[in-house]
Design a binder for these strands. Structure first.
Lengths: 341, 341
DNA sequence: TAACATTCCGAAATCGTTTTCGTGTTTATA
DNA sequence: TATAAACACGAAAACGATTTCGGAATGTTA
């Protein structure tokens, strides 16, 4: 690669000092019009652009936001990144994305790489393994130094920083209420293992609705899926039983789509024999048969909100208290819970 | 944010020079064991990490790869990023992602931001608008300076740089052959407008197969979808006609899934009345009813390949000629083109 | 005891920029 | 004509690190 042109080279070209060149390019009145013009013409010709590393070092500001997510091939997370990216760009920031791959070790390594000067702040969704180990010292280190940090979706309430979450409890509550309204009595919950906070919260909303509607909780209807094992086989055990549930609330789209597929394999009629609703991650729901009802999550808004909180923090426009923003959900009712008239 | 500790601060703490501290932390034999130990203990206690901006400036190397994609909420592109990220991480690089949003102007602005020293090289998939305007001066500027650059998927053959593409012609060829084999006679093509190179190439494979199989090309069966308008309405015009085609090859998953949905609305039996196959972008195909046959694209491999080419270029391990790698596709036959026995 | 080697450390350059503070020259003013 | 103001520019510090080179203080050898 050809070395880019620098102030130094321009200066030596005209036999002037670096400061003169710098000032000339900024139209400083300190430099005569004649000198200014010839320097600017030369710089223009060689397409001079200030080296951003040098600027970042001098200004002690990178205008880069680091993002660490558990997965990138994931509709919800990529939607959040989209929100972050768009807001960041609007505010003159760039985005550096790292993937923890649900691994604690990779998350820590990402922390180390990003927080050594290359970014002004960090937006993180916690890796599964980190939640499982309950090991947050890398976060605490940052927090101790007041490093700008925003957590989203997979958060930990004990960490002193800004947070953005989906209204998981409310979403599951609304969805369960909807199932009750259409007449479901035995509503199964397909959730994650307990250490995944969002799974736990959605379970909470489910239970809250059952209680409110006077339905007794049947622990046998609560299935905790282990994401590291075969999904299909686990969900099969929910539906291929002698007395299957008459409704399913799934905490994500994949669980819901699989449940729907398996229910059809058992020749169950949807929604008459079994109604199904999930939390939306993606595009699947629209194209299943019948299309799936969903709790819509608004990842884009979440990303924007996270970026906004972070940038305010970076630019110190926040009154010190930490904020926890809740992005509300809404129900998108499709035919998997609503028989056509 | 608390300022991070620097060599300077450590030096003044012990009344030694900065060079001494730097050497001590690197276990240089030039420094006495006594001095080394106390400096290292102190640095360790205050969690000293060298500022990466300073290192990047000095070493004239950022170990960051810039990626510019048209869209991020897109299964194929996020899969490619995943491949890039994983390979890059393995080689000690980080990834900075920017989104052009299919806009020429944003693509140019991303170029400007990324190529001023903040990245060692660039991986790009060209924005739709750029292809439409046929305006490549921003690329040519980089190429003139031998800036490491790799194009993927949406490429331009006139640009002198490394490239990675899907075997679009071959994929469409295989898919069309498959349709012919199962007995389809009137095979419609759902493609993009011509300036999208991948659409054009897939059309080429489609035509090639028809010719080889002695089927006359019917221009009325080639539909060029305009992505800026309503998809559903455009695809409806393919199927809600007096004599609909008996097979459809769609150049992406969304077109295919919509076609399938609309065919069912017209009560066509799939695959008996109409067989449907698409190019895979995502997860939809597995969950439609019937599941969609697909040309599998291997975005992850593509990302890895692109990152490998770029890093070799950066580290000058490439013999000067530019490479064009082709990632081959394969067919995943599901029930939308294959009646169950 | 003279010469040389070893040990331990510091000064300074370098990466590329911005910015403050001089300083020398010219021009305007009293 | 002496003095002040205006003009045009340069030196140097700063951001935070690495590295080459040089040098003082010891220790070793002939």
């Amino acid at each position: 690669m050809k070395p880019r042109i620098t102030l130094k080279k321009i200066a030596s070209e005209f036999g002037v000092s670096i400061s003169t060149v710098s000032k000339a390019l900024k139209d400083s009145h300190e430099i005569s019009e004649e000198t200014r013009d010839k320097i600017k013409a030369f710089a223009d010709f060689y397409n001079y652009k200030p080296n951003s590393l040098a600027l970042q070092l001098r200004n002690q500001k990178t205008s880069v936001i680091g993002v660490i997510i558990p997965e990138i091939v994931h509709h919800f997370f990529s939607t959040v990144i989209d929100g972050i990216e768009q807001y960041a760009t609007k505010k003159g920031y760039n985005v550096m994305v790292c993937v923890s791959n649900e691994s604690y070790e990779k998350e820590v390594s990402n922390f180390n790489v990003l927080t050594n000067g290359s970014v002004d702040g960090l937006i993180v969704s916690i890796a599964r393994e980190t939640q499982q180990k309950n090991e947050y010292t890398h976060f605490e280190g940052l927090i101790k130094d007041d490093f700008p940090l925003v957590l989203f979706d997979r958060i930990n309430d004990n960490l002193a920083c800004d947070k953005v979450i989906i209204d998981d409890v409310g979403g599951a509550y609304k969805a369960t209420n909807h199932l009750v309204e259409i007449g479901s009595k035995r509503i199964a919950l397909l959730t994650t293992q307990d250490f995944i906070t969002v799974g736990a919260l959605r379970k909470e909303g489910y239970l809250k609705s059952l209680r409110k509607n006077g339905i007794e909780v049947d622990e046998n209807l609560i299935y905790k899926i282990d994401d590291s094992k075969d999904l299909y086989e686990q969900i099969k055990k929910v539906i291929f039983v002698t007395n299957p549930p008459d409704a399913i609330l799934a905490v994500n789209e994949i669980y819901a789509a699989n449940a729907l597929k398996i229910a059809k394999e058992r020749k169950l009629s949807i929604p008459n024999d079994i109604a199904i609703i999930g939390f939306t991650d993606g595009l699947i729901s629209e194209f299943t048969y019948p299309p799936l009802s969903e709790v819509v999550q608004h990842g884009f808004a979440m990303g924007q909100q996270a970026a906004e909180l972070l940038i305010k923090r970076i630019e110190q426009k926040t009154e010190s208290g930490f904020k926890k923003e809740v992005i509300s959900t809404n129900l998108k009712i499709r035919r998997s819970t609503l028989a056509p008239n």
